[in-house]
């Protein structure tokens, strides 16, 4: 457990989290590994976990009829994966596939929601981080939508 606590505190998403808060969260967390090609999340399903990526890369993708699978964004070490665990009805809107060997921390979503409900200070600390993640992801999506490299 002590090792997992340290790993939690060292991840960019949980940087500056207090020792007590990390200790409180650790019972929801476990180390997981995925081989290249394995799916971490599947569209339309309840997310099995909220992931903090430590090593390897994951691509977010969506299947578009008549176009096939389109890769939307890559995530790597230091990123988080899966924001739908906090938003009812807890359903994924994208697939997430490992493109190489992935090592991550997986939080059980129900356990994590219960912890955040039980400790609102921790809930606020994580909500701020999740909001920043969503904000930066929205910023990146806007840039992609601009089609910057197209002919003007």
């Amino acid at each position: 457990m002590e090792g997992l606590e340290r790993i939690l505190q060292e991840h960019a998403f949980l940087e500056d989290l207090s020792v007590d808060q990390a200790r409180f969260l650790v019972s929801c967390a476990r180390n997981v590994r995925f081989a290249a090609g394995e799916f971490l999340l599947r569209e339309g399903t309840e997310p099995p976990a909220f992931f903090l990526l430590r090593r390897g890369h994951v691509v977010l993708e969506i299947d578009v009829p008549a176009r096939g699978t389109v890769e939307m964004e890559s995530l790597g070490p230091g990123d988080v994966l899966g924001l739908s665990w906090l938003i009812p009805a807890y359903r994924e809107h994208l697939d997430a596939r490992a493109t190489d060997a992935v090592v991550a921390i997986a939080f059980d979503c129900r356990c994590l929601r219960a912890k955040l409900d039980a400790d609102h200070d921790l809930g606020y600390a994580l909500a701020r981080r999740l909001f920043a993640q969503a904000y930066h992801r929205l910023e990146r999506v806007r840039l992609q939508r601009l089609d910057l490299y197209g002919v003007r």
Binding site: H57, V59, L60, E61, G68, T69, V70, E71, M72, E73, S74, G76, T99, R140, L143, Q144, D147, L148, Y149
Partner: peptide, 16 residues
Amino acid sequence: DHAGTDWVGSVGTVPS
């Protein structure tokens, strides 16, 4: 910015 599954590199913006 966008790719099919035959692309094994990164998908996303340069600033990221």
